[in-house]
Write a protein that binds this DNA or RNA. Structure first.
Lengths: 338, 338
DNA sequence: ATTCGTAACTAACACGTGTTAGTTTGATCT
DNA sequence: AGATCAAACTAACACGTGTTAGTTACGAAT
């Protein structure tokens, strides 16, 4: 079933079929002919072969979604809605989404496979590493890339969803309650952009109150509740005097809550906890989790729209939706004792 | 940068390059030539164009991952590890994964786009609908399909991951504790295979103890904690005498827990709750959730291996790993009062 | 009556690969 | 010496599409 068959059915040449179905306006065609071709295609259930189309046109109509950390895909709760949003917008513009999760080391192959072999038209990178030569090279040669995560990228041209999140508001809140020694459990080991950037922001927010964040008050997890639990135990050991914890995400916050309970702490009386993301379960925990709401669906949609702009040669439009985070006060914080 | 360039660099014909790089053994080539071609390709950083390859060979080396319910992608916790496993195994065999999340109605387009236009070599369907004519037609004409979810498919030839889960053990446990009126909050509305099948299994398990499951003891959610909360409130209203709830998944169980607390119930004293999946957070809830552990990674890996068998014309090998669920007893169940 | 112009369409090339049928080279056998 | 054969390689076709340059038909202008 090729365009040739449609041509025969409609009594025209294959060229005409191509012009009609690809919507080209380079050549004038009679309306009656256009209709006849469309009806013939419909009747035969014809669908163009993407390989032929790709070879001839050079565009694969495919975008690559790079998940730079396997842990993300394994346990983190903001991937699914992000993927949903990306897939939805992409489909609306005729693009398909190729998902690639990078293993630890040989990302060389993965990147070049997608770009050189699969000929993707653009890519969205979730939670990119702070330093990635491959990625930097792609951006340098103006390959359409959108970085999604908590990012400040030096190259102004490069599109990225700005991490306009407000740790400040959360920190103000904790300090307002009377907390002075606040710990942090990061979402992953140092080297991931989101991790490093969030710590930096946290530190800056504390400094506005004349507070500091010594390394002893930081522990590192891997997105999961278990890692949050283990890291929190280490944290309480390193810095027993902390009265509050800012967790890298809600799942980690959950692990912190359990660790605190195991040490006989009552929540939120003995320890205040703030999460990040406002995953769907956060409001249902006991106590309900005070958290910083990120907007994965809006972020995914915006990233995809920006990427489509880039792929079609336009400059990426500024996001027209508010991507900034929102501080959600629930019941997991209280004033410190003493 | 095409195979032609590699041919020139190596001083051979393009045919020779193709034979070497596609690993064809149809023609005898000198080892020295093979080496020279490989080195030339390496030196030039050549990667074959998948469109050309696809057109010539007819295989796209792509598998489609169909997420049949947007809710799944939005909130459910077993998608990420499943996707991770599928992507990993697929990559190991040279396949890429194209993700498609089906919107409500026009799935006609989505299916035929993937199969006819993108020419995927096979597909994995997550949580398929009980009745789907499109899907049935594909299976009928022996297109490689693996259904992943809780499924009993009539066509023996069709490969599916058997839902060898054990509601029985959980029900035995609850009945053993003394419960007689047990409610259920389903993961989605009727019509999804997993939902219908799980209710059927639950009913069968109860019957072995001479107990029944009237419709009034069933409420329907949509995978989310919120839906679990709302459905549980309805359930307590319809059937105030239930002493235990079997939740469709852990997230719904969380919502049920909150609903119970809002009604002044103490957990697990006044209500026993069992989840499903053993998502990473389940062990960290308060009380820790007793649940039925599913194995998304093993399921995803197995589904992909089976699909690869099918795509390569072999019969799908029986899974060599244990995919059966495991009943995990924690602290969310107790004997009923009175 | 010839030229011109335009609307409507199409022949033919290009994209990059896999593969079949065929050619060259050089050694071995009668 | 000529015939035979195998090893090593290659010319040419096929896959399905988009697009450029060109052809046909036909009414209008000179």
């Amino acid at each position: 079933m090729t365009s040739h068959d449609v041509a025969r059915e409609a009594g025209v040449s294959r060229t005409t079929v191509s012009m009609v179905l690809s919507g080209s306006t380079a050549v004038v065609l009679a309306d009656e002919t256009r209709l006849r071709v469309k009806q013939a295609a419909e009747r035969l259930g014809y669908r163009p072969n993407s390989a032929g189309r790709m070879l001839a046109s050079g565009a694969s109509k495919t975008i690559g979604l790079i998940v730079s950390n396997p842990d993300l895909l394994l346990v983190d709760g903001f991937i699914p809605p992000t993927l949903y949003a990306i897939s939805k917008i992409a489909a609306g513009h005729g693009y398909n989404v190729l998902v690639e999760s990078l293993p630890e080391a040989n990302d060389d192959r993965a990147f070049s496979d997608l770009v050189l072999t699969r000929r993707i038209d653009g890519m969205i990178v979730l939670n990119p590493r702070t330093e990635d030569p491959q990625l930097a090279a792609l951006i340098e040669r103006n390959f359409p890339v959108v970085l999604l995560g908590t990012i400040r990228h030096p190259k102004e041209v490069t599109v990225n969803i700005p991490g306009t999140h407000d740790l400040q508001e959360a920190v103000d809140y904790l300090v307002g309650l009377g907390h002075k020694r606040i710990g942090h459990v990061a979402i992953s080991k140092p080297g991931s952009n989101a991790t490093d950037y969030r710590i930096m922001e946290f530190r800056e927010a504390l400094q506005k109150h004349g507070l500091d964040l010594p390394d002893s008050r930081i522990a590192y997890g891997d997105f999961s509740a278990k890692s949050g639990h283990d890291a929190a135990l280490a944290l309480f050991n390193q810095a027993p005097d902390i009265t509050a914890v800012l967790a890298g995400n809600d799942t980690i916050a959950l692990g912190v809550m359990r660790a605190a309970r195991e040490l006989g702490k009552s929540l939120p009386r003995d320890l205040s906890i703030i999460g990040y993301d406002d995953l769907p379960f956060a409001a249902y925990l006991e106590p309900p989790l005070t958290t910083i709401r990120s907007k994965p669906i809006e972020q995914g949609e915006t990233a995809t729209r920006m990427l489509i702009d880039l792929m079609q040669g336009r400059a990426a439009a500024k996001p027209d939706v508010d991507l900034s985070t929102e501080f959600i006060v629930r019941g997991s914080c209280a004033g410190p004792l003493g």
